[in-house]
């Protein structure tokens, strides 16, 4: 027998491109240089500690972008090309922000913060911020993994066994939609440490979406997939591991993603309510001192941490589900 020849994808036709400037990069560079000039040349309305550093950073970014623009974004810098409009907008945003805070003092303090004040938090309090990130991660990750594991096993068992489904379904249906934070008073009472209580809550928040989506994934595996393996002598354990679980994996990853989202919100609430460390605690504590620059800095770090974890999860998914076509890119 011979397979009907099917042409593989053609190698992308690559032509040597003549040197051309990257206009977007050049404009962004000029915008950042303008922002640097504004920061450095216009005296601040008040005494700020990090104005020179901010101006220096803006000037460096501007110079590098200008050079990259003139050189036509060679090599790996070419990946920045689509970001051109964003880089211009960020510089414009910095200029506007700098004007209404540090330069003209139009917005009420301390709630509104100048860019250099935010920068000062990073340069002066980075150790405490880093420590907070570490503590948040050390609280989040064990709880998430625990909840994801139990949720996955529960989901597979419910999808596979009618009897498990019969008993677990009503419980899941009643308890699941309840926000995990509703358990807060009970959790802090039932567990001896706030760390245990928070781990339990994070695990609970992760458990529900993972269990439900794993369950629905396993339950919707086509019967013919099992028949094929059964005719070839597969035993139930093989069917679970090699058919049900891989077939349900796309759905499982949706559950893991949703679980990650709810675990973030529980993490922050737990750190604000009882745990005496982590980014949530840092924000709560700074707010008590009206140190809003620290609150915003911590928010920014938290956003970076959350998006980093989601990106990591999506990377794992892309790697595990490489066989799928057209998955959503993060």
């Amino acid at each position: 027998m011979s397979a009907s020849a099917e042409a593989g994808p053609l190698p992308a036709a690559r032509e040597a491109r003549p040197w051309r400037i990257w206009a977007g990069g050049g404009i962004a560079g000029l915008a950042w240089l303008a922002a640097a000039a504004l920061v450095l040349a216009w005296p601040d309305a008040d005494d700020y500690g990090r104005t020179e550093l901010l101006g220096g950073i803006a000037a460096t970014v501007g110079l590098l972008l200008l050079l990259a623009g003139l050189a036509g974004a060679p090599g790996p810098i070419a990946r920045l090309r689509p970001a051109g409009p964003w880089l211009v907008a960020l510089a414009a945003g910095l200029i506007a922000w700098e004007l209404v805070t540090a330069k003209l003092d139009l917005l009420p303090r301390p709630f509104f913060v100048a860019p250099q004040a935010l920068l000062e938090v990073f340069t002066d309090d980075y150790a405490k911020l880093g420590d907070s990130v570490l503590h948040s991660l050390l609280l989040l990750i064990p709880g998430y993994l625990l909840g994801a594991t139990i949720g996955f096993v529960t989901g597979v068992a419910m999808g596979w066994s009618r009897r498990v489904g019969y008993w677990a379904h009503p419980v899941l249906r009643l308890i699941g939609p309840l926000p995990a934070t509703a358990w807060l008073p009970i959790a802090f009472f039932a567990f001896s440490t706030s760390r245990q209580a928070s781990t339990f809550l994070i695990a609970l928040a992760t458990f529900f979406p993972v269990a439900v989506l794993t369950w629905s994934g396993v339950a919707s595996v086509a019967g013919s997939f099992y028949d094929v393996a059964r005719t070839m002598g597969a035993r139930p354990w093989f069917l679970i591991r090699k058919v049900a679980v891989p077939a349900a994996l796309p759905s499982v990853f949706v559950g893991l993603f949703m679980g990650l989202g709810s675990s973030f919100s529980v993490l922050v609430v737990a750190e604000m309510m009882g745990v005496k460390s982590g980014l949530g605690f840092y924000m709560q504590w700074s707010q008590g001192w009206a140190a809003y620059a620290n609150v915003y800095a911590a928010l920014l770090v938290l956003a970076g941490m959350c998006t980093g974890l989601v990106t990591l999860l999506f990377r794992v998914r892309d790697w595990k589900l490489a066989w799928q076509k057209g998955v959503v890119r993060w």
Binding site: T231, A234, K242, L321, W323
Partner: peptide, 29 residues
């Protein structure tokens, strides 16, 4: 495994390569 059924749909496992699909019966046993 001595009586193998082939369906109207190929029912290949989309997460397995052609070789891994073909290996299914040997793996199961």
């Amino acid at each position: 495994p001595s009586r193998v059924l082939m369906f109207q749909d190929p029912t290949l496992y989309p997460w397995r390569s052609v070789r891994a699909n073909a290996a299914l019966g040997l793996e199961a046993r």
